[in-house]
Design a binder for these strands. Structure first.
Lengths: 251, 251
DNA sequence: CGTAGGATTGACCCGACTCAAGTTAAGTGG
DNA sequence: CCACTTAACTTGAGTCGGGTCAATCCTACG
């Protein structure tokens, strides 16, 4: 586990200039809400690639919203087996479980340098009291996560290795595009080990399955990342319908 | 798909006599909250075993809290493959996804006769406005669901067939006991097909795996259900820690 | 007594795992 | 600039867990 990143209380990204707000997918705050969120915000966290943002089994007094970068959420078994349960992208709220439960039950690691917006968990109740619409948004985000997990579970439980992989790539591409992470070609900053640990497959078999997608010219391997050549075909191959969400909230 | 159950607006279980309230696990309502929830409640739904409570791809104007009975939440692929993503027990809130997203992305089917408390989805926002504590509880429930899904995903992705099965049985037993569903011995009202579809295994292999647990005298098969003989051993076998939650909310 | 949904079992096969050896590419320090 | 290290990616060989197919059995129920 690499060391924690830097927590700063000065603002590189004050809420009025939130890099998320400029994205069309996200709904806009009302002035009062912006005001509240601005006070709710405690600072910014900058972490390097590979850093642990949140650790399983700890109590963390913070809630985070991802502003920039990629990360993944995972669980470990005592003998070292790892299951990645989901990925986190800009706009995602993390640490909610830790706020409501006692200890957090999963870890989060950065896949790229990340910038996160830090909130005080103790303040969450006052958000609920003063801004029911924002509270509703928090629930919306939790519900959306649940929806993604359902889909991931379907994938790991019932799809073949090739379908699973195709689904995962299409899913991540779709999510990342939705928040404007790619200009032209999509390249996922993910190693084959990450794929394997997400799909419930071994590294070796994952590699061989990726080869099949490469042979079909659906993806390419570049600079230690996966370049997506045809996301639509991938989605179709997996039997997944990437129904794009409309506008969505964030905190 | 069997027909829907009966929706009644007269109250067999008025909120003041909610069968959940008497269970110690659930937190108590304040008088004002009870009052609100009582108005929020639209009626009661009684469904038979095998009935579909919620159907994937539909818009459902209701939210439900399970009062009595077992059910399961699942997703289907177009070729018929089924993945059960979780089970629903008394105290569980279902249909929240349908309230926040457009269409619901999963179905719910009754494993036993069920009684559900019906709420109007349109009223949810007023709950958020008038009772922040209850809103917080809704989020808590969503977050708890997320936590269970993470664990299920770990199981399907990384545990062996025997471990998975042991985990599932221990998990369900623990949940059901927590809400006081068993007096003495625990018997899960679940067929081997359900187990298979939860674990991501074939029916045949599930059967053979159950046999191993029977040989170890950890479970027994009775009356078309699974009688749990040693939940602790099962949990240990699977490497799962059934850390019991303390008091919890419900709506 | 017939039927149907579940549970069981055996035979056979294949998808995915493990083990083992590389290869490649990107540092890093002398 | 080169030797060394390390992380990530490849590939082949052999094995095995779990899948499929096909019967068969049990038991509740009409």
């Amino acid at each position: 586990m690499k060391e924690q990143g830097k927590l700063r209380s000065e603002r590189k990204y004050p809420c009025e200039k939130c890099p998320l707000a400029s994205r069309d997918v996200f709904r806009k705050f009302k002035p009062k809400e912006l005001d509240f969120v601005s006070r709710f915000k405690r600072g910014e966290l900058f972490v390097d690639k590979g850093a642990t943002v949140l650790a399983e089994g700890t109590r963390n007094p913070h809630l985070y919203t991802v502003l920039i970068g990629w990360g993944f959420r995972y669980k470990l078994m005592s003998d070292g087996r790892r299951q990645i349960v989901n990925y986190v992208l800009p706009g995602d709220l993390i640490g909610l479980q830790g706020t409501l439960m006692d200890e957090i039950q999963h870890s989060v690691e950065a896949l790229s340098p990340m910038t996160l917006c830090v909130f005080e968990r103790g303040e969450l109740m006052s958000l609920y009291r003063e801004h029911p619409e924002l509270a509703y948004d928090v629930t919306w985000l939790a519900s959306r996560e649940e929806c993604m997990l359902d889909e991931n579970l379907l994938s790991v439980g019932r799809r073949s290795a090739l379908e699973r992989l195709a689904y995962l790539i299409a899913f991540l591409t779709s999510r990342a595009r939705a928040v404007g992470m790619f200009n032209g070609t999509a390249t996922l900053p993910i190693t084959q080990q990450h794929f394997a640990d997400t799909l419930g497959l071994s590294l070796v078999h994952t590699n061989k399955t990726i080869r099949k997608l490469i042979d079909r010219k659906l993806v390419r391997w570049r600079d230690g990342g996966c370049e997506v050549l045809d996301a639509d075909q991938l989605a179709e191959l997996s039997g997944w319908d990437p129904s794009n969400e409309g506008s969505r909230p964030f905190i």
